[in-house]
Simulated scan of single mutants.
Amino acid sequence: MNSPKCNSEYILKNGRSRSGKQNFKCRDCGRQFVMSPRHQPISSATKKLIDRLLLEKISLAGIVRATGVSERWLQYYVNKKLGAVKREVEVKSKKKGKLTIQCDEMWSFVGNKDNKQWIWLAIDASTKEIVGVYIGKRDQAGAQGLWDSLPPVYRQCAVSYTDFWSAYGTVFPQKRYKAVGKETGLTNYIERFNNTMRQRISRLVRKTLSFSKKLSNHIGAIWYFIHEYNASLSIN
């Protein structure tokens, strides 16, 4: 018998675990353990699989069934992972010049449908990168949050196409801001991306049991998907 931490053979019996199994302790490193533990360490391969499944429209309960991990462990893992996701767009650098973005806001909720959380997004019409993200209320502060999330070169140069929601006009520069209808096709890319998010993120499906119960996880899941989406693009 060896210590699972330092591989030492200097092992002592050390009482029993809560489940009644013989507990052992390593004299060298102090690690306590039992033989054949009921809960085995989660492998790196399983964690990588979970990371991929979090990008698909599958609930946490579904991931538990697919991978065999415990609900408690998965919730801890998801909380930690989504809490560490960077809340800032990562896009390829652009030179100053002609840039065009399309903006839109998408409804979602946390906990219940009275707690609305609007997802404000901006997409580069040329590269299809998501270049702006803000999650909050559908008001002037939300439009400001989207504007502030844009990289500086877009705030300086980009022409913005949006719907007719009045909050945009109070924040975006008037000379480079154009409100248009869907029939123009000038917001097609961002509307298509909204649909992609609803198809890929179970938390955003309008009628679902997989809705977010925690705001930080809701925001983290959206950012996690957007980072992976931008990274998957082939940009010339």
Rank of each mutant, 00 (worst) to 15 (best):
D51V: 00
A84H: 06
Q40Y: 13
K116V: 15
S36M: 10
G20R: 14
M35H: 12
A158Q: 07
Y154V: 06
K81W: 00
V110H: 13
V133A: 02
V153N: 00
G30L: 05
Q32T: 14
G68F: 13
A45P: 02
S202F: 00
L54H: 02
E88H: 04
L49I: 11
G15H: 10
G142N: 07
V89R: 11
A158Y: 05
S160E: 04
G220C: 12
K81V: 08
R87G: 03
A231R: 15
M197C: 14
K21H: 05
I190L: 07
I190A: 03
N7Q: 14
D51H: 06
S232D: 12
A167H: 07
P173K: 13
Y154D: 00
K25F: 01
A66N: 14
V133R: 00
A45W: 09
A179V: 06
K86A: 08
W118Q: 03
W120H: 11
I219E: 15
V171A: 08
I42P: 10
G97L: 11
N79W: 05
I130M: 10
P152S: 09
K207A: 02
G142V: 04
W118M: 02
K137L: 03
L233P: 05
S160I: 05
R176T: 13
L60E: 10
L146E: 06
K92I: 12
Q102H: 03
N23P: 00
R18D: 12
W120L: 08
I123V: 14
K96W: 06
G142C: 10
T162C: 00
K178Y: 15
L146A: 02
H39I: 10
K92A: 11
M1R: 11
Y161A: 03
S149F: 01
K48E: 14
L53M: 14
L60F: 01
S126H: 14
R200N: 10
S70M: 11
S149T: 00
N23Q: 13
L121N: 02
P37A: 04
S212V: 07
C6P: 08
Q144D: 09
L54N: 04
A158R: 01
L150T: 01
R203F: 06
F211Q: 08
Y224W: 08
S216H: 15
K98M: 09
A122C: 13
Y229F: 15
I226D: 09
I123C: 01
V180F: 03
L53Q: 12
N194A: 05
S210L: 00
Y134K: 01
S166C: 14
G132L: 04
V64Y: 04
D163L: 13
G185I: 07
G30S: 14
G220E: 09
Y77M: 09
P151Y: 05
